[in-house]
Design a protein around this nucleic acid. Structure first.
Lengths: 157, 157
DNA sequence: CTGATTGCAAATCGTTTGCACGTGC
DNA sequence: GCACGTGCAAACGATTTGCAATCAG
């Protein structure tokens, strides 16, 4: 699913209403690839409709969760729960320094069968998360390490 | 790292103290394979030392995080943050029904290189999470579906 | 003896809930 | 018109913080 119109259709089928607030929030969710928290969505909403309440953002995101159009992302002990707005299954790279969470498009072979422990389990989804440093942060890290070495050299004189 | 004694050694090196409370909490953490929340650790602590405060449990877990002896586990929107007390890298199976999180021992080839997006990233860890139904829950689910079918048959009469 | 640790209470922060008012359909 | 939606304020639950008393090294 993609467009606001398509979601609107789903809402109608459930007897739910399409208010201007919802339209905006759904639009923002559908076009956001940054896995925003509720707070982040809320701030974007305010840019266009300054009167919308946090409650409405929470409500709408909950509806989207129920519709299955948005998914919770594994919390990385940050501000709050992040949401993933892509319907397509995909994997994640998380930068442990700047805390960015980006989608990674790689094919993961269904690896589950190789484990005997999982023999009787029903596997619905497999989600890979890579932890590391994004290009910008790995550069910064390298610079910091150089600085530290210099400091040590000075203090040991 | 494994034993309480080894952790105690690490603490001493950092100028930290080994109180009876800490000894107990660390012992519980090291022997727990269920990815407990703070609350669950706290309850276990109370069984032995009923006077320990939640604050101390929080503090000690924080220290263990700093030492790298315990890791936060991706939140699955439950009671609270869960902790992983195994030093060894491994993967997880999460039952979406009973919310159990169990370790899975399977070898995942370092799949990161296959993506060009990750070319300049430093990958520190890769963590696979499988979502599905554990044997017990998939059985329950099957039974429920049967029940529903019967109900539908009755109501459509 | 001294700085780290404990444990209490209060504060914080994300999220949920209760409810009167407003509005799509 | 009526059910659903909105937005306010209050409630909640997990976690953090401030601080005085206590204790390990």
């Amino acid at each position: 699913m993609r467009s606001v119109e398509q979601i609107a259709e789903l809402l109608r089928k459930k007897g739910l209403k399409l208010t201007p607030q919802r339209r905006l929030i759904i639009d923002i969710l559908l076009h956001d690839r940054t896995h925003p928290t509720v707070e982040e969505v809320y701030k974007k909403v305010l840019e266009t409709m300054p009167e919308v309440s946090r409650t409405t953002v929470y409500n709408t995101i909950r509806e989207m969760l129920n519709l299955g159009e948005v998914a919770e992302v594994q919390d990385l002990s940050d501000g709050g729960i992040r949401y993933d707005t892509t319907g397509e299954p995909h994997h994640h790279f998380f930068c442990v320094r700047c805390r960015a969470l980006v989608d990674v498009d790689l094919a993961l072979p269904p690896v589950a069968e190789s484990s005997s422990e999982l023999a009787d389990c029903v596997i619905l989804k497999q989600q890979l998360t890579l932890y590391g440093l994004c290009p910008a942060c790995s550069e910064l890290q390298r610079q910091e390490e150089k600085m530290e070495q210099k400091e040590e050299a000075v203090s040991s004189r």
